[in-house]
Every structure is written in C-alpha cells, then in structure tokens.
Simulated assay, not measured.
Amino acid sequence: MPNIRPPAVAGSFYPDNPNTLASMIESYLEQAEPVDKAPKAMIVPHAGYIYSGACAATAYARLQPGRSHIKRVILLGPSHKIGFTGLALSHAEAFRTPLGNIPLDTNAIASLAKLPFVEYLEQAHEFEHSLEVQLPFLQMVLDAFYLIPIVVGDCPAEQIEQLLELFYGTEGTLIVISSDLSHFHDYATAQRLDRETSDKIERLDYLHLNYDSACGRVPVSGLLSLAQKKSLQIETIDLRNSGDTAGDKSRVVGYGAYVIN
C-alpha cells in the first residue's frame, strides 16, 4: 500500500467536499488580476479559507500562465504543533486532499535529508495545516506536479537559504512559503504592524522580522536571505486581515501575498 499523508484540516480550514472546495477556490481566483508570467517564488497566508483564501488567491492566480510548465513545488511552512530544530521531511509518497493525491518528489527529498539540519520527522507533518491549506490551491492552478513539503522548526535563515538555493531558478520549479502576519491585534493596530512588516519584506530586511511580525518568520527569512544574495526583488500584491473578510475587527490576523518574479 502506498504511504499517503491524509488531510488533517479538511472540513475545518477548507471544505472537505471536492465540488464545494473547487468552487470556492475558483471564486477566489476569479477575483484576482491575471498576469502574463508566473512568479518563481511567493509567500501566501495559511488561515481558514473564509479568512485568508481571497488573499492567497491573488498570488495563486499568477501561477496560471505556468500551469503546464511548473512541475515541482517546494513548500515550506512553520510548525504549529511540535517544537524541533531544523527542517522536517516526510517519508510519504503522496499528500492527499479532497481534490486527489499529490505525489512527492521522493528522490529530491532523499537528497535533502543528507543536509545536516534536515531530517525525516512525520510528527511535524501529521497535523500541520500551514502546508496543507496550500495544496488545493496548487491543484487548481497547476497541471500535474511533484511536491517537496518541508515543515520548518527553529533554524537560522541561512540554512533555509542554502536549501532553497539548490532549487531556485531551476526549470519548472516553484517555491512557496506559507505564513500569516500579525496575530490578535485590533484592526487598526494590525494594519499598521502588517504594513511595517511588508515594508521590511520588500526591503529584504529579514533580520528585523520577529514572531510578532509573521508566524512563518523563519521560512520567510530564508527566502528573503536568498533574494538578498541573488539581488532579487519581492513585491507585495495583497495585504489585508481577517477583519476585511470573515472576522471580528477587535481581534484580527494579518495576511499578505508576495511574489518574486
């Protein structure tokens, strides 16, 4: 029997009915502006779809020009369930969503396991939503592709940069970083803090990001370190919070969408 990681948050973060799920994502994508060229890397939020789906869609819609070209996705997101040091891989052969199975690039994953700060750690993947919520979007905007899912623990940005540099710019490869922004401030405070964080992201100033800036500060910092090294530019394409969508404005979570072209 194949080793498949089943969905952990279908029915809570997003619909578990495939038709309902596909329709929801389509409605978000239809609201986003089309572009002519797919980005090489992006940062997207990972909350429940009713809160952050529209924001995430502004980035995912930009992948549609690369629908048949993008064949591999490297997906990094923070750990919400367990604490560990380094980066966590999975032995799974595929990750499942209500829309079907996504095969993993097991050969590339095995090669990453040789890095001293990378290990297989199934517990990090078992219930983690930061990666899972990205998968249905990817299934909707891309044709067949292989996935390299990595849950990020405590590690320096330079280690993530080292890993990402192995793949950045290679033919048919996309990098996706999963992160929300500020958490549980009032609406006006969140807007101010998230604008400050976006300014730092655009300046590639990862040294001044902290956990209050973004729950995925570590993988975001790794991407910004790579962008700094390669003299890349990152663009903010959407910035909002749960008070703009389905949440109470007295206590919101911030969301941003960013791309590197």
Results as ranks from 00 to 15, higher is better:
L174V: 07
L174E: 04
L174G: 01
S178H: 01
S179K: 02
L181G: 00
S182G: 09
H183R: 10
F184K: 12
F184T: 11
H185L: 13
H185E: 13
D186W: 01
D186I: 05
Y187T: 06
Y187V: 07
A188C: 08
A188P: 04
T189R: 14
Q191P: 10
Q191M: 13
L193M: 14
L193I: 13
D194C: 05
R195Q: 15
R195K: 15
T197W: 06
S198V: 06
D199K: 14
D199H: 14
K200P: 04
I201F: 02
R203D: 11
R203G: 05
R203N: 11
R203V: 00
L204H: 10
L204C: 11
L204W: 06
L209A: 03
N210R: 10
Y211K: 14
Y211C: 11
Y211M: 12
Y211I: 11
S213L: 01
A214K: 00
A214E: 02
C215S: 04
G216I: 00
R217K: 14
V218A: 01
V218I: 14
P219Y: 01
G222C: 05
G222Q: 03
L224D: 06
L224Y: 07
S225D: 01
L226F: 03
A227I: 07
Q228D: 13
K230V: 05
K230H: 14
S231Y: 13
S231Q: 15
L232R: 06
L232W: 05
I234S: 02
E235Y: 13
E235G: 08
E235T: 14
E235K: 15
T236A: 13
I237K: 03
I237C: 05
I237D: 01
R240K: 15
R240N: 14
G243N: 03
G243M: 03
T245C: 07
T245M: 11
T245F: 10
A246M: 12
G247N: 11
